[in-house]
Amino acid sequence: MKTKNIAITTALAFFIIFPLAVRSDYYQHIMIIALMWVLIGSSWNLLAGYTGQVSFGHAIFFGVGAYTAGLFATKLGISAWWGMIGGGLAAMLVGLFVGWVCFRLRGPYFALATLAGGEIFRLIATNWESLTEGMVGILLIQTFRSKLPYYYIVLGLAGLCILTIHLVMKSKIGYYFVSIREDQDAAESLGINTTLYKNISLLISSFFTGIAGAFYMNYMAFIDPHIVFSLHYISIMAILVGIVGGVATIMGPAVGAFIMVGLQETFRSAFFGLAPRWTSEAHALVFGLLVIFVIMFLANGVVGDWAKIKRKVFRIKA
């Protein structure tokens, strides 16, 4: 317990000091994006990792959150920052609908239904031009020129999300989530209203993902349907973050987020300009190989199999 507290304090101190010590806009930007993925990955993990309802459609909630914030500004003329609450709530509302439709299905069928759901939302956002401006997207003016406010906002959100999930998982609700994942019929026979608790999990998950979307709108100041409702860049990325870091662990998605964003950025910049340009096109290939590697050798992710990594890689005996 002691070492755990020290680790948490050190990590917190590092994240609080980081942008003050590293003044580079570029590295601050990477950290902001990684922290945003901590938020999304942790939310995905609550539903998929702990409750066993694997979503391939988290872009739905991200996109709805982002568009809510954007439309607040363009249609209602209020600050897009109201989207930080409104986007979360809108994503929850959409989550209720998605749950109502998709929770009739179990396992892979649920996953496929969410995948289809994500594409439906992307097409709606693309074609409902009178509301969303379609592929033109929504362009705002950033509130802050400095990256510091964005950094601390997203750091706070990521911390809040992890803390919430930590507390939920120690309560009755958490026990019920895991029971549902392990065996839905057994859970039902133990007096667990599985439909209700799957929806609770989905609502918490969609709320935080929606907030992440609203944050993205405020921070990047530009969205279009192919960015925020993207299967590839949002839904699949959320799964990768969870799997690489470790599903059903509190810190797994946080670690996974930094690994994945780090890798993505390394490839996007063609190894920071050191490698030939074509390498930047190879990230999908490498992500694919990474998933195969993780599933074969680290089925519980970096955090879930940390003891194994210590033993095999660093030769530390437990």
Binding site: Y175, Y176, V178, S179, E182, D183, D185, A186, A187, S189, L190, I192
Partner: peptide, 14 residues
């Protein structure tokens, strides 16, 4: 139908 990846105590607590 044990809740496989939960301990015996966690099964009964649930």
């Amino acid at each position: 139908k044990p809740l496989s990846r939960m301990t015996v105590l966690e099964n009964i607590t649930a």
